[in-house]
Amino acid sequence: MTQGIARRFQISTLAAHLVLIGFTLLALAPTLLVIMNSFKPRKEIFGAPLALPSFETITLIGYDTVLKRGDILHYFQNSLIVTVCALFFIILFGAMAAFALSEYRFPGNRLIGLFLVMGIMVPIRLGTVGILKLMVSLGLANTLFALILVYTAQGLPMAVFVMSEFMRQVSDDLKNAARVDGLSEYTILFRLVLPVVRPAIATIAVFTMVPIWNDLWFPLVLAPGESTRTMTLGAQSFIGQFITDWNAVLAALTLAIVPMLILYLMFSRQLIRGITAGAVK
């Protein structure tokens, strides 16, 4: 009897794992394809797109082109500045807004909360024309600052929503004890509450960082100039109307994955705690 249960349990575990492995492969396949093909010559890319690079075919020509022709390090730097600054502002302002919404009772509290949730539902790209006009009149067109502003606005609603949920779980007693000890509200937020909601911050960091890094739309519209080009936009310069240097495009995209991977690994332990905390609750 117990054996039967154990076997059934094993079978269902196996089935679950099969589904998960299948899904993982499905999700990884395009990335693997990009990485694989970035090491192959052009003929092989089109001749046998699914084949692994062999000893005869392996080549670094794509990377060679990328590093020689484009100002790739500069693009990297631009992407990094935009992503890190946007992330910093999202977490800073998001935490402050979330603390206000979760901690204080004031008229319009729920209304502001709802307004911010609406920001999650309405895609910011719908306002591209207006944003472009605004940036031009502010003299911010073709600056990294314009991108940072837009991405901060784009990421804030989700950040406020997630963090205020987490902050509601921080014990009132703890905050009150700090008030009795004479800590200011800012100290309570930054020294007491933020460390406790660290998993939430990691979750937000990962979920907002990737779309910003990968975005092509706003760099193309707001900062297409050579000096402000981001990584994704830089990779596009190898795609021409008539001739596309696929080696270079794939190599550039592969390089673009690396920093995200590093940042993700940094946040991932906290991230998993954050996700399970939300799921189990």
């Binding site: 014990s171 007693d173 703890l174 009150n176 004890a177 700090a178 009795v180 007491l192 460390p195 406790v196």
Partner: peptide
């Protein structure tokens, strides 16, 4: 000075 139900020590 106040003593709280959940102790409320700074973790």
């Amino acid at each position: 000075a106040m003593v709280f139900q959940s102790y409320a020590l700074y973790p």
